[in-house]
Amino acid sequence: MHVPDGFLDAPTSVATGVVAAGVVATSLRKARAELDDRTAPLAGLVAAFIFATQMLNFPVAGGTSGHLMGGAIAAVLVGPWTGLLATAVVFLVQSLLFADGGITALGTNVLLMGAVTVAVGWGVFRAVQTVLPKTTAMVPIAAGIGAFASVPVASVAFVGLYAVGGTADIPLDNLTTAMVGVHLLIGVGEGIITFLAVGSVIAVRPDLVHGARRVLEARELEVRTTRAAA
């Protein structure tokens, strides 16, 4: 869903650039709390993994393809603030080195495919996590559901921006239907990839997964309580 140069007018692109810069600045501050001895070495790798996976377009219906956006996967693996930074680096490199995603649209892409998918992916992940049993096996499932939800929401956010600053006069209801329709399908792919990737790390080292911490801590407390009672 990389927005190219020219889809949005200059004022909108400047505005998204400013907001994106603010989000990145906030993330730079907040990410420090997430980066401990366990997650810090993985953050760069998660960004590289998202870059690689974004090259892998998978077919969806009707001569269309889609690829991972990656906000949910990044947030669950290394934390939402670090995850936002990881996706922002990916979009920066894609735009400058690979001409994928406009340079004037960099802020737009960081917001839509970074901030929106991180926020929705992480938010839904947390919500689902509170409902599901507190086991590490549930973490990839919750991550997959969060990832699935994040993609159509990002496509709605694009329509919102297009309504404000689109350079062509396109009926918004048509645009909404088309965008959400195809991105629901792409979201399924996003959910599956996220489930598999998070599941792989959970299988070998659940303690490395940021989103599994609450589960692990809760379990540890239980163990202590049982011991104390015995």
Binding site: H2, G63, A99
Partner: peptide, 29 residues
């Protein structure tokens, strides 16, 4: 990987605003 247009590209073609895309600044890198 699939080489068909991605979601947004396809929608921009179908809805008729694909041609509003302007040349990319690093397009000849």
């Amino acid at each position: 990987a699939a080489s068909t247009p991605d979601g947004l590209t396809k929608v921009s073609e179908d809805e008729g605003f694909a041609d509003t895309e302007t040349e990319h600044g690093t397009g000849d890198g």
